[in-house]
Amino acid sequence: MFKQLPNDQLEMVDILLNGEKIQVPLGTNVAAMTLSQGQRYTRTTSLSGSKRAPFCMMGVCYECLMVIDGIANQRSCVTYVKQGMQIETQQGVGSLPEGAHHE
């Protein structure tokens, strides 16, 4: 669907996209990076389970929500890749971090 034009001026970083280690230019927004990696969708809805992908790319539509570094519901179009970032497709409402444990 999309490809990223080569640009050797940019520093590359390692990230994990759905568990796969890839190299991408530092500072690319996560949505653009995900699309250019051939991923066609970034989340499924919690209601019908249908697939959704980035729509506006400017932070207003909330369709590009992904799980970034373990936190669900992050707008991938206004989040920028950093070394070691872990990015996952979001399923429905995502999950909450574990609560504190008690005896």
């Binding site: 999309f2 490809k3 640009n7 230019p25 690319t28 729509f55 506006c56 790319m57 179009c77």
Partner: peptide, 14 residues
Amino acid sequence: GAGQILFKAAGVIP
């Protein structure tokens, strides 16, 4: 506009 932002911000095109 999303298509344009993809290009402006990340050099990503169809």
